[in-house]
Nucleic acid binder design. Structure first.
Lengths: 160, 160
DNA sequence: GGTAATTAAGACCTTTTTAGTCCTCTTTTC
DNA sequence: GAAAAGAGGACTAAAAAGGTCTTAATTACC
């Protein structure tokens, strides 16, 4: 019941890029130093994020990584699932065949709801949110007003 | 980001006992057959649940397992944590030292909130709930009225 | 065009966890 | 005391986690 190190590093790395702004290429080395992540491991993670269209890479001298889109349009859920695959609380929710009691399994319902709650908050929090001052973030997260609004946050939520 | 098979089996096994009522000892063999769980694996799991005071065991001929308390007083969270240890969404929430940015880590806040949401629903759902008809359970889970009420459910929630 | 700096890709490795099994011992009932 | 349970510990195979290493492929600059 934990997210993996790779998933955690992905969020940290992407957030680090978010803090630098959209245009500037940041070398993997800098991100590692700042976030205390092993270099070659992060390289691998950023590769995956590149394929997922979350970051953009630039090879050669003066190369590095940038976010592919504004940080306010990238959700934490998106980053996490790019690395770990679709978030599933239990194997039942991945391969429904593994539940024999297919007709009316209340446990499946419980797991589905738990998973939904996690996806909801992860999907409504963007990288931009993580770069904001702590007090603001706390207020937003615990405020519970994740459902309303028309900003990028609401748009992001639609894809869940 | 998944619960383990052991955790899942524990909930299934305990729920199976809940369906049989409080008094009657159920042999491990019966539970396994009913829930499609490997026998020696479930034996191990029930051992742990016994130590945790969730089920009670009876050796010898006509032995077996029963719930140690009424099913309405045992939460799914309790069963899960008896097997998997305290539910932690990320290692940061277990050993805070692993987060270097101790002063104002917004990611820690996000994870804390996600974890809280999972604990909330798992901690407010009892084994008795899982034995009820699907429609009822769905209504309760999604109703969102998990905070009010004075029943065993509210009591259970206090320990979270 | 050469060279240094940078990411890409994938093979490889080590440790830990998962998901069990198996065997022997103890307890309990008949 | 025999038979039928669970208790407990040792063991194992497979998968996942958490990385490392090597060899490209690009790119900027001289």
């Amino acid at each position: 019941m934990q997210i993996t190190r790779a998933g955690e590093y992905a969020i940290m790395g992407a957030t680090c890029l978010a803090r630098r702004g959209l245009g500037k290429a940041v070398m993997i080395h800098e991100v590692c130093k700042e976030e205390h992540i092993p270099r070659s491991f992060l390289a691998k993670i950023f590769q995956a994020l590149t394929k997922a269209g979350i970051v953009r890479s630039q090879r050669g001298i003066r190369g590095g990584f940038t976010l592919a889109r504004p940080s306010a349009e990238i959700t934490v859920l998106e980053v996490l699932e790019a690395i770990e695959g679709k978030l599933a609380f239990d194997r039942r929710l991945q391969e429904p065949a593994s539940c024999h009691d297919t007709h009316a399994c209340t446990l499946c319902d419980l797991f589905t709801e738990a998973q939904h709650r996690v996806r909801e908050i992860m999907g409504s929090t963007t990288l931009a949110d993580l770069t904001r001052p702590k007090a603001e973030v706390m207020k937003r997260i615990q405020g519970g007003n994740l459902h309303n609004g028309n900003g990028p946050r609401a748009r992001a939520l639609q894809t869940i």
